[in-house]
């Protein structure tokens, strides 16, 4: 292991400042007593938050996003858990191809996923709305959930499950009594992060949702109007804080019970 490298350290610190500072302007200006996001700052205020609080479309959009996010994260986690189990437990023909297939949505421009879904949905004669959005989100969240769950499951000794079978439990009982409790932190992390991805997702919702906007779409629509920007800042600041909290919680869960650092991968 190398000893020290101060110039690299300085560079790294500057890089992280570059990474983090831009996002911090949102909360900063959300408390600024002005309708413009510019210097000099003109005083502290909560009025953008009050403004946001008084707008009912915000809450309607929030409810839509929560509904879609919960369904998408639960369904993706179930699909991903089964897939993760298959990839970690069995050596089978076509495993690499199947693995690539599950991860593929992550590697394709989102706009193309969105466009393809429009094409099939309209061809089948359905109307755009929250159903295709949710389906799209499940497709998009599954690769992430699977990576989280694979890293959790890989960390465990399969002999625990073998011991359970050896002691007379059947496969189903072993899953509920041994595997599930062990995977639980990973499963919760997958639910949380799946929810976050769906909650923040914009493109699929933008193309597929029709008239029912999700929260990111609501924000997008407001961005066109300069006067309405400040309450979007307030909303954005809240979303960033809440997201960070949930993600840190998920990280904590992912590392729970396994001290090894290498398990900390997404």
């Amino acid at each position: 292991m190398e000893q020290k490298n101060n110039s690299l350290l300085v560079y790294t610190i500057f890089y992280f400042l570059f990474l983090y500072i831009p996002v911090l302007f949102l909360p900063l200006f959300s408390f600024n007593d002005s309708n413009y996001m510019s210097f000099p700052l003109s005083g502290f205020t909560f009025r953008h938050y009050e403004d946001m609080w008084s707008k009912t479309p915000v809450f309607r959009a929030l409810w839509v996003s929560v509904k879609v996010g919960v369904i998408a994260s639960v369904v993706s986690t179930v699909i991903a858990l089964m897939a993760a189990k298959a990839f970690t437990k069995y050596k089978f023909i076509g495993s690499r191809v199947s693995y690539a297939a599950v991860l593929l949505p992550f590697l394709i421009p989102e706009i193309i996923l969105a466009v393809s879904l429009i094409v099939i949905w309209l061809s089948l004669g359905f109307k755009l709305g929250l159903v295709p959005v949710t389906i799209g989100h499940i497709l998009f969240c599954t690769p992430f959930c699977m990576l989280i769950l694979v890293s959790r499951i890989e960390g465990f000794d399969s002999s625990l499950e073998e011991a359970s079978r050896d002691l007379g439990e059947n496969a189903w009982g072993t899953f509920w009594k041994v595997s599930f409790p062990l995977y639980l932190p990973g499963i919760i992390a997958s639910l949380l992060l799946g929810f976050i991805i769906s909650f923040d997702e914009f493109i699929l919702a933008f193309f597929l949702s029709g008239s029912d906007p999700t929260l990111p779409m609501y924000m997008w629509n407001q961005l066109r109007f300069i006067k309405k920007l400040p309450h979007v800042l307030a909303l954005g600041a809240i979303i960033i804080v809440a997201t960070t909290f949930v993600v840190l919680l998920a990280y904590w869960l992912m590392n729970l019970g396994q001290a090894k650092e290498k398990d900390f991968k997404i």
Partner: peptide, 30 residues
């Protein structure tokens, strides 16, 4: 955590923050 945290914060808001920074009346200009 520091490396991966930005990955999870809203893509839309991350882009939006650059509008605030680079805009005509944005952070840099003002």
């Amino acid at each position: 955590i520091l490396m991966s945290l930005p990955f999870w914060t809203s893509y839309l808001l991350r882009i939006f923050s650059w509008k605030i920074i680079l805009g005509t009346k944005g952070v840099i200009n003002s």
